[in-house]
Amino acid sequence: MMPIQKKLILTETKLFLREPAAVFFVVVLPAALLLVLGASIPGFRDADPSLGGERVIDTQLPGMMVLLSIVTLALSSLPSTLVAYREKGVLRRMSTTPIRPTALLVAQIAISAVVAVLSTALTLTLGHLVLGVPVPRQLAAFAGVLVLGAVAMFSIGLWLAAVAPNTRVVQGAGAVVMFPLLFLGGMWLPRDLMPSALRVVSDFTPTGAFGQVLRDTMAGHAPGLPHLAVLAGWALIAGIAAARMFRWE
């Protein structure tokens, strides 16, 4: 079983790297945005009273870039690939071999997970070296919430892949879901500045909760239990829905 999976993962990795758009939006863009915005926008490197005295480049901007990378992977890259595989009969062809098409699903999720970790590491390392973005103070907790948040987002992406009938729909739906979720996650308006009603809505979204616990652990605070519960809830609901509704053809 293991060597087979290895070759499948290797092949799927090559295919991922051959999609320049995916690599750009998931890996290059978040890191580049952090560096360019962090270096060029006046005030991003100064203590900001509206963020409780933090600098924008401390947790808000890098946290949002990590969120951007994982949300793009989970809601755009992963479901588009899986729906295209179903639409083109790649999964059906695989089901005629001794390998179950589940192996392809596992390979895709594994690659997405590795890319999420690498992209996060690249963004934070470059941010640290170029702009002096602090290393997450609660590194273990940061890693933990990264995993939980990624699981929640990937589950939603898989759910999307399960219900979308074709690639056009999955790409359209991915975009329609992604932008409000990024907004509620605090991408354009930091959660600190949201009107309280909006922030309550944000608290219950996967991106709002994810963005907050990323920033919490980067700043050295313990992640808030309610936010962790929201993430776990989304992971559970979307994961079960995806598993029940996923079709191979």
Binding site: T11, L15, R18, E19, A84, Y85, K88, G89, V90, R92, R93, T96
Partner: peptide
């Protein structure tokens, strides 16, 4: 088995 309408990823 070779079935109808089964293709492969474009860049494979």
């Amino acid at each position: 088995v070779q079935l109808q309408d089964c293709s492969l990823p474009d860049k494979l």
